[in-house]
């Protein structure tokens, strides 16, 4: 019964976050614009060399997702802080992990939508030919996003109480995400341009392991970071 109540609360938080985001529009527009701008800047920096562009495509894509994602994570708690709604949210009975799960799912949907736009623009800008292994690439994209979003949602909650949250979040998040980014980048690149060293499996296992660690750790630790 308690679990069913928590599921109801998770659904309510997801609906609330996505509805407020859809109506305000500012969040998604700014996050997607930042992602696309990052790709364009990387493209300009690499010049017209198509081989260099293709080589850098996977790295540029994941860095664009990371930087734009930080903006999204900060924003997901800014909505709560604006009218003192975080306080009201914490006053509702129920498990704290339900709040985290609701925020996590809403951020996952949000970042995945942004990813669709960034990937579309990236394919055109970096002259990438979509390989027949594209379903595997989609799987890696989703696994990578899951790792980034789980840790991003957690650290955004932790830094939400700080006045310097915009600075604090990247400082906390970027070093911790290095394994996820590394695994996602190398696996994506290998699937795009051929897995000569037969290394994709190992990187995917590493990515999955970090996803599980991040998910479990953040679910358990959320209660302690959200309370004062």
């Amino acid at each position: 019964m308690a679990f069913r109540d928590d599921v109801r609360r998770i659904r309510a938080i997801v609906w609330k976050d996505l509805t407020t985001e859809r109506r305000s529009k500012a969040g998604f527009n700014s996050v997607a614009s930042l992602g696309v701008t990052m790709l364009v800047l990387f493209g300009l920096a690499l010049g017209p060399d198509s081989v260099a562009l293709k080589d850098a495509a996977a790295g540029a894509l994941w860095l664009a997702v990371l930087f734009a994602g930080v903006l999204a994570f900060n924003r997901s708690y800014q909505v709560e802080l604006d009218g003192g709604a975080l306080e009201a949210l914490l006053l509702y009975p129920g498990s704290r992990w339900a709040i985290f799960a609701g925020k996590l799912i809403a951020n996952l949907i949000f970042v995945t939508l942004m990813l669709v736009i960034v990937v579309g623009v990236g394919i055109v800008l970096f002259q990438v030919v979509v390989p027949p292994t594209w379903p595997a690439i989609v799987g890696i994209l989703l696994l990578g996003v899951l790792g980034i979003v789980s840790l991003g949602t957690f650290y955004a909650a932790m830094s939400s109480r700080s006045r310097a949250r915009e600075v604090l979040l990247p400082l906390l998040l970027y070093p911790m995400l290095i394994p996820v980014l590394l695994a996602s980048m190398i696996a994506t690149k290998a699937l795009l341009f051929g897995d000569l060293m037969n290394e994709v499996g190992a990187w995917v296992r590493m990515l999955s392991a970090f996803d599980v660690i991040f998910l479990v750790a953040t679910f358990f630790a959320f209660e302690y970071v959200i309370e004062v």
């Binding site: 309510a12 609330k16 509805t19 407020t20 009218g83 709604a85 006053l91 129920g94």
Partner: peptide, 25 residues
Amino acid sequence: FSHIPGLYDDLSARENLAFAATMLG
């Protein structure tokens, strides 16, 4: 009942209460 309203600006009055009712069960 705090001096901070704790409401969501981009939800309607009814939606704010619906969210609260769902959270409260």
